[in-house]
């Protein structure tokens, strides 16, 4: 009975509940690393709880050895920084060129780098979930990932996402 006295009414608790966003980051290219990090950082800036589930190639975004060297695909990327027919886009150096151009665009626009966005997001307590299945499939160990990641399977992420106001897959 004492619980009913100390707990606020359900309406009150709902009003106090912070909004929440649950994002899935499934791509490991430089251009696709930005949207989930930007949205998570923005949501946290709005006072929301934010969590990003890094799965499949998206795991590279929080991989110590890979997050600094994410690339932009020059092949099968018609909207990419270099407009090449696929035949030429497959040439050695094309991906490096596309990546270099994207990084210059970002730098010129004073956009933070991916590692900087990760730092901003973690500074705002955005939760980073690392997909345990991807880790198993790709042979990634906990020590390979940046600090502060939570290793989670799909059920744990869905448990977080079920109470989210916004859920997005990137």
């Amino acid at each position: 009975m004492t619980d009913t006295l100390t707990q606020p009414a359900i309406e009150d608790r709902q009003e106090e509940r912070r909004r929440r966003i649950a994002l899935v980051a499934s791509k490991g290219t430089l251009d696709q690393a930005y949207p989930p990090l930007i949205l998570a950082t923005t949501a946290a800036s709005l006072g929301w709880e934010a969590g990003v589930y890094f799965t499949f190639y998206g795991l590279d975004i929080i991989h110590n050895d890979r997050l600094e060297s994410l690339k932009v695909a020059s092949l099968a990327n018609p909207a990419g920084p270099i407009q090449l027919p696929n035949l030429l886009g497959a040439l050695p150096g094309a991906t490096a060129a596309a990546t270099k151009i994207m990084k210059k665009w970002m730098r010129d626009a004073r956009m933070p780098t991916v590692p900087e966005f990760i730092e901003m997001a973690q500074g705002l307590e955005v939760r980073f979930f690392a997909c345990s299945t991807t880790m198993g499939v790709m042979g990634v160990e906990e020590g390979d990932l940046i600090k502060g990641c939570e290793i989670a399977g799909a059920a744990a992420f869905l448990d977080f996402a079920a109470d989210a106001d916004v859920q997005l897959f990137v």
Binding site: I38, T41, T42, S45, L46, G47, A109, R110, M111, P112, M120
Partner: peptide
């Protein structure tokens, strides 16, 4: 600076 930096910094 572009989105999301104004919101981030203002927050």
């Amino acid at each position: 600076v572009l989105c999301p930096l104004p919101v981030y910094r203002a927050s």
